[in-house]
Write a protein that binds this DNA or RNA. Sequence first.
DNA 1: AAAAGTCCGTTGCATTTGCAACAAAAAGAG
DNA 2: CTCTTTTTGTTGCAAATGCAACGGACTTTT
Lengths: 223, 223
Amino acid sequence: MKKYIDVIKKSPLFRGVKDENILDMLQCFQGINAIYERNSFILEAGETTSKMGLLLTGKVYIIKEDFWGNRNIMMEILPGDIFGEVYGIIKDEPLGNSVMAAEKSQVLFLEIEKLMTMCTESCRFHNLIIKNLLNVMAEKTLLMTQKMEHMSKRTIRDKLISYLSEQSIKNGNQEFEIPFGRQQLADYLAIDRSSMSRELCNMKKEGLLEFYKNRFILYNENV
Amino acid sequence: MKKYIDVIKKSPLFRGVKDENILDMLQCFQGINAIYERNSFILEAGETTSKMGLLLTGKVYIIKEDFWGNRNIMMEILPGDIFGEVYGIIKDEPLGNSVMAAEKSQVLFLEIEKLMTMCTESCRFHNLIIKNLLNVMAEKTLLMTQKMEHMSKRTIRDKLISYLSEQSIKNGNQEFEIPFGRQQLADYLAIDRSSMSRELCNMKKEGLLEFYKNRFILYNENV
DNA sequence: AAAAGTCCGTTGCATTTGCAACAAAAAGAG
DNA sequence: CTCTTTTTGTTGCAAATGCAACGGACTTTT
């Protein structure tokens, strides 16, 4: 386990915990190691779990299959990331997604209940871990809220306006760079890339904005 | 404050805490009461806050204004609900939304930092509160994940399939009732009601499903 | 029972969108 | 520099969608 300390201490969950305390904590959280071969299921939709996973090595997909059998990759989990925390926290909630090893992967399972409950000895870093967990979840909520807000607009133009407005505000400037290429942006907003490209150019023609590569400038209508 | 104990103890955050302990805890969390008149801002986009709000009476809207000034109601907060917890947890993150009183409202502000950190006396219920907070956030994440999954489909048909599949699985039956009327479902999936109605009927004609009011039955293609 | 209101399906139509295919531009590789 | 790969813009077109308007079924109110 010691060889994975590097991944663990860089994970958002253990951020700030000193090396010498990590091993103790893992014991406290009843950490269990498991290795999964490529394409094997780590968790299956419908199951319940009281543990969350922390990926040590490899790569893991969160996948979703619908009633008619169509499969869809929802998320990619990389070393240091955690998964399944929601289902560990909400007891008895059956998983809505399956978790599959995209390649040979090593997973550290942690007992969420232990993690959420102050141990009687009140190890010095337990507080930190709980805060870290809350932070991870809050960040996730934040990102999802923002994304949903954009996606809930009815037209491509409104989705773009919503997204670009946010970026502008975030940068405190009507000129800014976005962290996506065109295809990625289209995926993020759940729209077709070429249609998006078309709409961006329409908006440019109408004088709403300008862009070059990933740099955008928004204009007020009355200028 | 005592007159609000009923709302507080029914809120998801204080669920399970005994009456006689609530007042103590409020002190521990540095609870501050504030009253807002209709249409006044409780929090404004761009600010930062270290507190979360718990609505005691009235009604509050989470609203969003874009670069061009269009205003949009994102969420409705009712008594017992909490808001701003994400921004309280992630320090220094400026609010992406504003919070406005939809009617005269009384709000209890709680210091998130106090709430997240075990007090030295380790009051008996502090653990419970933290778990409750994690639960609230996990539930929120869960609901958002599901919604996003449906919304990210490209066509109305695929959105419906995604949503109805989930409902079918959740009920463990290919016949089930949904908790939405048509207009609500359309809002939830961020699509036009009449277009959705049209697509539902197309699917019915093709033998994919049947429905009467809010009751649906899904069929496999090969039956 | 009549009236008013709500919910839902239906339809025509202009617009938007996804899709596919291609062109142009930019970035990397050798 | 040339060739290859990746990214981005362009366009035609069929299909999907939003929008508005209408009417029937069902509920609630008076």
